[in-house]
Design a protein around this nucleic acid. Sequence first.
DNA 1: TTCAATTTTCAGGAGAATTTGAAAACTCCA
DNA 2: TGGAGTTTTCAAATTCTCCTGAAAATTGAA
Lengths: 166, 166
Amino acid sequence: MELDKGKEQFIECWTSMGSSWGINRTMAQIHAFLMASSRPMNTDEIMKGLSISRGNVNMNVRNLMEWGLVSKSTPNGGRKEYFEADKDVWQAARKMINMRRQTELEPVVGVLKGLRKVEGEGKEAEEFRDMMKSMYKLANRTNKALVRLEKNQDSAVLSVLSKMLK
Amino acid sequence: MELDKGKEQFIECWTSMGSSWGINRTMAQIHAFLMASSRPMNTDEIMKGLSISRGNVNMNVRNLMEWGLVSKSTPNGGRKEYFEADKDVWQAARKMINMRRQTELEPVVGVLKGLRKVEGEGKEAEEFRDMMKSMYKLANRTNKALVRLEKNQDSAVLSVLSKMLK
DNA sequence: TTCAATTTTCAGGAGAATTTGAAAACTCCA
DNA sequence: TGGAGTTTTCAAATTCTCCTGAAAATTGAA
């Protein structure tokens, strides 16, 4: 397969994965596009490359910067902004994991923590509390494991992990 | 907090988490509803409990069964079907992880594997191949780790994991 | 076989999320 | 300061996904 076809396939693949994980379609597209580019790209190049509007590029590129996956620069002292993806895949994965851990897992842990203590006497209440306890335990452990993962700079951590889980 | 309020909050929490992870809103709702119920529920009870239509219940309950998270029974020899969630939280988590690993991660691993070998000579092609190589490595390792996770019956695996990632 | 209870299907509707494009705002240089 | 180049905003349009509800199919009992 040729390079251009390869890039196209990569973008498509990354995009479809992103959308099934609740990540905005265009955001995934732009991220893949920048990951696959060998140099920083400006807004017009992204618009042309992916056939999307200026407003759309602007909004999603800003999101990607918030996630820390993309950075902006203005070479030649000009005003034109160029965008570049962090090419360290492991680093990028860690950022995505951490972003979602914070916004989505952590609040759940908090809610479950409270729900373990719900009032009531009978078998039904007892069972509910038990369920909340085991959910809390799982969510909390997962959260902690992901925090550790985030702090760890070494990508070898995954191979360690897979050895442990034999 | 009282039991009923607690169940409500749990359903809401589970639902919102589900939807940010690309899981159908109603599917998450029904799953939470059944997790929080102390006995199997029939279609009418689910409809009433969550204020959703019959068709919607039917479709999503079948999905949940496909995922292996919910099972059906017909007590009293009648035709009426009752649905019940698997109450083992760890088991349920493993099923969800595995389902998505198969349908979403595995195909990506395959694509990346091929893209490592994209044709072309210059620096650009070289860089692209390198990127695909490291992505493949990460995706493949993650996939393998998740397979091991799925095979492991013991929920203690997460505490092991968190000790490892110190 | 017939009938009533129940489940399943699916076309159309509703609502949510995304995208566009043009106007407004901003910024730097001459 | 004026103006061209560039970014940002946002209301409206579009697209997508999900849900409804009634009709059709299925099932078990009599």
